[in-house]
């Protein structure tokens, strides 16, 4: 099932709520696209020392995650980094 199919089943009110929740997390974190780009480049540089990664497919974003403590949802930086090949002889 594609992402599109999930949204098709939701009412527009729920879509609005979900979009807003994500949006406000990054708004509140006060993270500009420029800073996100800098973070992304730094992550690439660190990981590249140990493995070959797909820089094009790399995606990072700020989202919400359940906190282990008692303060509910907290912002989290989630990075999806596709690995092409792990370097063995480093």
């Amino acid at each position: 099932m594609s992402l599109f199919d999930i949204f098709k089943k939701k009412s527009s009110g729920d879509v609005a709520k979900d979009r807003l929740k994500l949006l406000l997390v990054s708004d509140r974190a006060n993270c500009s696209p420029e800073i996100m780009e800098l973070i992304k480049n730094d992550i690439i540089n660190v990981i590249a020392k140990y493995m070959e990664i797909d820089c094009e497919g790399l995606d990072i974003q700020i989202t919400q995650t359940e906190s282990e403590g008692e303060n509910g949802n907290v912002p989290a930086l989630v990075a999806n980094i596709p690995i092409k090949e792990v370097k063995h002889n480093s």
Binding site: S11, S12, G13, D14, A16, K17, L20, K21, L24
Partner: peptide, 17 residues
């Protein structure tokens, strides 16, 4: 009427956000 149909965020939704 729109909230009932799911086409508008409810008061509860707004307060939650």
């Amino acid at each position: 009427d729109m909230v009932k149909k799911g086409d508008m965020m409810s008061i509860e939704d707004v307060v939650d956000i």
